[in-house]
């Protein structure tokens, strides 16, 4: 873990030595990292759309082979293969990426210290080694996070709520409990769309401005990538809701 942190830090230092501007170093580092990840990200975003398309077929397989797990898994994999769904979207790659996220955060916070950078930490109006007191970067980080959260929101809904059709009282009670839990989780998910950008703004004011710059660049990159590959996503739904709400509030109000 420490080795990877040092590797990221040394790459940042090398780029900074060549470029001679910390802001540009961070932007180049972010863009290079994202460009290197493109071969993985493009198929995964396309696969997300395909997964939505094949969801009815997956449900049919679940009903048909639900009791025979091995056969179900085999049929699922056949379906993924047929539709060319990205194999790198499972739980283990996510756990690995969460680990890399922590390492990246540590590398950036270690790199962005006044002792490490001296007087070279200036970029535009900012001292990238200290928190942004003008709040411009933290607000930009929060705003971009909000847009991205809205774009990918439709993929985060809670599934698997059990229809309460069972005749057994015990099963009915278990189902009710599960529905209650699913509703609580769904409520938290909806609120997280609004809470996460606020948390991002707060954290961006506490850490060096360079970290906020990194966050803005990487999130804007993700927004562009998401838009090009799968369109505006949930933004369309939220815009329609906002228009409807504004219309009913200001244009159809009772006189």
């Amino acid at each position: 873990m420490l080795g990877i942190t040092e590797l990221f830090s040394s790459v940042l230092l090398e780029i900074n030595t060549v470029v001679g501007n910390l802001g540009l170093t961070l932007i180049l580092f972010t863009l290079a990292l994202r460009a290197a990840l493109l071969p993985l990200t493009v198929p995964s975003i396309k696969a997300q759309g395909k997964m939505r398309q094949i969801q009815p077929e997956l449900s049919k397989l679940q009903k048909k082979f639900g009791k025979n797990k091995q056969k179900l898994q085999k049929k699922q994999f056949e379906l993924y293969k047929k539709h060319n769904v990205n194999p790198l979207a499972g739980c283990v790659p996510q756990i690995i990426q969460l680990g890399i996220l922590i390492v990246l955060f540590r590398a950036l916070t270690t790199f962005l210290t006044p002792d490490n950078l001296g007087s070279t930490s200036r970029f535009l109006w900012l001292d990238l080694a200290r928190p942004d007191s003008s709040f411009i970067l933290p607000v930009l980080a929060g705003a971009s996070q909000f847009i991205l959260a809205l774009m990918i929101a439709p993929g985060g809904e809670i599934r698997d709520t059990v229809p309460n059709k069972s005749k057994s009282k015990q099963v009915q009670q278990a189902n009710r409990q599960e529905e209650g839990m699913a509703q609580m989780a769904a409520m938290m998910q909806k609120q997280s769309i609004y809470v996460l950008p606020i948390v991002t703004v707060f954290f961006s004011t506490q850490f060096p401005a360079g970290l906020a710059l990194y966050w803005v660049v990487t999130t804007v990159f993700s927004i562009g990538q998401q838009y090009v590959l799968s369109g505006p996503g949930g933004i369309t739904v939220y815009t329609q809701r906002a228009r409807h709400w504004l219309g009913s509030k200001y244009f159809n109000a009772p006189r």
Binding site: Y80, L148, I152, A182, L196, S222, Q225
Partner: peptide
């Protein structure tokens, strides 16, 4: 499950990889 969106948004922000449950 409540923090699912947070995890997904963070990973999409940093790595750009979208997830779906298989």
């Amino acid at each position: 499950q409540g923090l699912f969106n947070v995890k997904t948004t963070l990973l999409v922000s940093v790595f750009g990889v979208s997830y779906h449950c298989r």
